[in-house]
């Protein structure tokens, strides 16, 4: 079995299938892998089995992983130090930084069922957002009820530092961030969106900053921007 091998040798076909299933002993698998590097025909046999067998996963339902998993993966790959901070990114421009994050965000918040423990969350929100820190240390779900202008908020992970408050901001288009108020200290609560801002929610970005109790005294964020998330229609 070392020379004169035909491309579609029956034994190799079986061997490739056994390898793809993981049925070979460690020694057999090592030998097979050494051949795999050398023999394109064998790679083709393996690839064909891999395509066949993956059909066994067709019936396996998708399950959304936890929202902070991508951050954990990125931390493993890039290391915490290599990541630009939100402040750095926002320093380059609120909107561009936020939209880059929006492009990669896993939109978890589209499920109204997420709000089943909220105070009286809308059954059919017009918009939702997941406002999340890059490292997953703060995650707030938001759902907007267009009927009464209330933005329902549920803090899933993290919270304000001791003696500090979390303030919510709306960034619409090229406009400067506008405060929507200080997040309730309770895990779930709501804020009334001023009528003049309601139309700006669509396509906007929500951000949460670290502020003194009662919120920023100046009308612009004074502390670190902790979390951001795009507003999505349901």
């Amino acid at each position: 079995m070392t020379d004169g091998r035909q491309p579609y040798d029956e034994d190799d076909r079986i061997l490739a299938g056994e390898y793809a299933l993981g049925l070979l002993t460690p020694e057999e698998a090592t030998r097979f892998e050494a051949r795999l590097v050398q023999e394109p025909e064998l790679r083709a046999l393996y690839a064909a089995w891999a395509e066949d067998f993956v059909g066994m996963t067709d019936g396996i339902a998708e399950v959304t992983p936890p929202p902070n998993l991508l951050s954990r993966i990125e931390a493993r790959i890039f290391g915490a130090a290599a990541k630009p901070s939100l402040m750095q990114r926002l320093g380059l421009g609120w909107v561009s930084g936020s939209l880059a994050a929006a492009a990669v965000a896993v939109v978890i918040g589209l499920n109204a069922g997420l709000f089943d423990t909220g105070p009286s969350a809308p059954a059919d929100p017009a918009y939702v957002a997941q406002i999340a820190a890059e490292d997953g240390s703060l995650i707030v779900q938001a759902a907007y009820d267009a009927d009464n202008g209330e933005l329902y908020l549920r803090r899933d992970v993290g919270g304000a530092a001791s003696g500090r408050a979390l303030e919510l901001w709306l960034i619409a288009g090229d406009n400067a961030p506008v405060s929507l108020g200080v997040l309730p200290e309770t895990q779930a609560g709501s804020l009334t969106i001023p009528e003049g801002l309601r139309a700006q929610l669509a396509g906007g970005v929500l951000a949460i900053s670290d502020e003194p109790p009662g919120g920023s005294p100046t009308g612009v964020a004074t502390g670190a921007v902790l979390a951001i998330g795009p507003v999505s229609p349901t």
Binding site: Y8, E33, L36, V37, P40, E41, L42, R43, A44, L45, A47, A48, E51
Partner: peptide, 10 residues
Amino acid sequence: VADAAPGPEA
């Protein structure tokens, strides 16, 4: 596996 192009069957 790093090198070479995919085989014809794949």
